[in-house]
Simulated assay, not measured.
Amino acid sequence: MRSPGRGWSSPRETAALAPLLLAGERRAFDGRALLGLFLPLGAALLWEAVVRTGLAQGRLVPPPSRILTTLWDLARTGELRVHVLVTLQRILAGFALGAAAGILVGALSGSSETLRRLLDPTLQALRAIPSIAWVPLFILWLGIFEASKVALIAAGVFFPVYLGIAGAILSVDRKLVEVGRVFRLSRTGLVRRILLPAVLPEAIVALRSGLGLGFMFVVAAEFMGASEGLGYLLVDGQQMGKPDQILAAIVAFALLGKAADSLLVLATHPLVRWQDTAREHL
Rank of each mutant, 00 (worst) to 15 (best):
L200G: 09
I194W: 12
R181T: 13
T14G: 14
L163G: 10
L163Q: 14
A23I: 12
A133F: 15
E202V: 08
A49K: 03
L37I: 07
F138K: 06
L97M: 13
R26G: 00
V105A: 05
S3I: 08
A44E: 02
P243M: 00
S112G: 11
L88T: 03
I144S: 12
R208V: 11
M1Y: 06
V218I: 13
P270Q: 11
Q89P: 13
A49P: 04
Q239M: 07
R193G: 11
V218Q: 06
G54Y: 01
S9Q: 14
G143I: 05
E202P: 04
M240Q: 10
A96C: 00
P201K: 15
V179F: 04
G24E: 03
G7M: 08
E48H: 02
L22H: 13
H83R: 11
G164S: 10
I246R: 07
A133T: 14
G214I: 01
P130C: 02
E222S: 11
F138M: 04
L104W: 09
H281M: 03
H281N: 05
G210R: 05
A154I: 05
V50C: 12
A206I: 00
A260N: 04
V218G: 06
S9A: 07
R208P: 10
R2D: 03
E48R: 04
K175N: 01
A43L: 07
D30M: 13
L264N: 04
R59H: 05
T70R: 15
V199I: 15
V61H: 04
H269Q: 13
P270T: 02
G241C: 09
P64H: 06
F215C: 00
V84M: 00
I250W: 03
L264A: 09
G237M: 12
A93R: 05
L115F: 10
K149I: 05
A154E: 06
L213K: 10
I129G: 10
D173N: 04
R187C: 01
L263P: 08
